[in-house]
Design a protein around this nucleic acid. Structure first.
Lengths: 126, 126, 126, 126
DNA sequence: GTGGTCTAGACCACT
DNA sequence: GTGGTCTAGACCACC
């Protein structure tokens, strides 16, 4: 369900957090769904349970999941997450577009990139 | 000439490197132009000279500048830099566009963002 | 009769204990009154019978109820409970008042809060 | 500067967080002031550096302090903290006052407690 | 020197 | 079984 990218320079816990928010945004995980247990996910990824714990703690702080002692971790609030995520992406998009403008990249070039991505047939990757 | 953003979580040396490549891409710095001396820049930004040193060292490794012992640091090779930078930006742009697609953002929305950025009146600074 | 608050971070057994002492302090439950059976309450709240058992055990240890094998659990000693509870509340009250003082909250502000609470029309529930 | 209460049932990291926010509310720590380094505080309290780290991380997440790699942790935003703290205290105060009302404690009794606390001479404790 | 991440292993509280 | 806290000790990145 979750796969780590060893090439990714970000901390492991951050990758885990992102993967789960992705799963929520994509609609794979829905309100009330349980996350894998701390120990189980740690075993699956062969990392330390503390690292998973930390990721889950962050997710709880951000209001993405609800941790219940002795029971498990459950998704909450998918709507808010999706909205927040959309805002983040748009702000990133604006930033990189500004850089593109400064770097002398033309509007047509950007639009053709968008076209390519939104109309690609096979999902080839992942 | 260079301003640090304390809110930026990236290491200071990385910020410095980026600022200088930005200045090159924007055409403010051109082939042969001198960079401020390590000590002077360190004093200006009130940071440790080691940090500036490291940034300059990285820039030299990447072939952006040329360090001459006892003389100073000089810009080289603006063309290659500009090309490389353009590639980086485009790859970033593709990545964020993919995320936007997954996040359910429409093509029209992206295009309107691009329009807004490319047609905004120059607002002097930042 | 008893309702659990999932938002409450305290352990379920503690919530159950508190609810029953509340019912006693409020005069809903009186000396000799029976508590619901372990199994019945567990079913009602859809929680594990062990959790209810633990709550009842604690209440017995504190001398609030009397467990009779094969018969049930009965309230004892309402007077002592009420006194003890009053002491607890006052000590909590003192503590938070001290914090209020340190936090720069004025006496008038506190008194107006008290006034509001003691004179509010009963708002049925919650 | 910071003292732990072994009798306190709350986790150590939570105690540390509270102590520092207290110091801010009381005006002992002000905007820009540095906190003790992770290792130093850990040594002082003879606890594990990880525990201090966790406390500082939480404080940073809550926007109370600013962690700068290789430099230290610095207080930010004292005004917002003080306001938030005041709100928390008032809400606690309301809650315990309601309990007092339900427990049959009179308004006069509460007011006399307030008087005693706000007018005590020697600060005896801490 | 500083903060940040991770592992290994232990113990506790709760269901 | 579950999540939560803590220790000990290591290594990295940054200043």
């Amino acid at each position: 369900m979750i796969v780590l990218d060893p090439g990714d320079r970000r901390p492991i816990y951050a990758q885990i957090e992102d993967k789960f928010t992705d799963l929520i945004v994509l609609g794979v995980l829905n309100e009330g769904d349980p996350l894998p247990s701390v120990r189980q996910l740690a075993a699956e990824l062969s990392i330390n349970p503390n690292t998973v714990q930390r990721a889950y703690l962050d997710l709880e702080t951000r209001g993405v999941i609800n941790s219940i002692r002795g029971k498990g971790n459950y998704v909450v609030d998918t709507a808010k997450i999706k909205e927040a995520r959309k805002g983040e992406i748009l702000s990133e998009f604006r930033e990189v577009t500004k850089k593109a403008k400064d770097g002398g990249i033309s509007v047509t070039e950007l639009k053709s990139e968008i076209y390519a991505i939104y109309h690609e047939k096979g999902e080839g990757e992942k």
